[in-house]
Amino acid sequence: MHGDIEKKIEGLHPGTAIAGAVVISFMMVLIPFIMFLHSSAYVTVKQIKIGSQLSAANLNGSYDVTSPVNAIDIANYEATLKQKLTTINNNADFNQNDISNQTLGLPAN
């Protein structure tokens, strides 16, 4: 029995063995890759990438990146930023009441 196996191994063509090893290695790389592509982690990565692209400095032409900064420029920007923050309302936009049992008309837990 043991001798038969050895004979079979000896009979295996080296090229076939190498090709088999390559195919199996390829599959082993492919398994996690396909799983990653189908995972929610990949979806999140894509969303983060979009967010990064939004935040990435696309400073070509639309922003002044050359003139010297004065203290007054920073102070003015503070005011602009403050104004910009008035458009943000976390409590209203992400309101817990939106999905409370009472709002949804569900029985209390």
């Binding site: 979009i50 935040s55 696309n58 990146v65 050359t66 010297p68 900064v69 920007y77 910009k84 936009d93």
Partner: peptide, 27 residues
């Protein structure tokens, strides 16, 4: 859509800040 808007707002703020940083570095 709201989150997208938030990210847009904060993204443009980061752009502003980076522009300031570049200008400061130049001087």
């Amino acid at each position: 859509a709201t989150i997208h808007l938030y990210l847009d707002t904060y993204g443009s703020t980061i752009n502003d800040l980076q522009a300031f940083e570049l200008r400061l570095a130049r001087q």
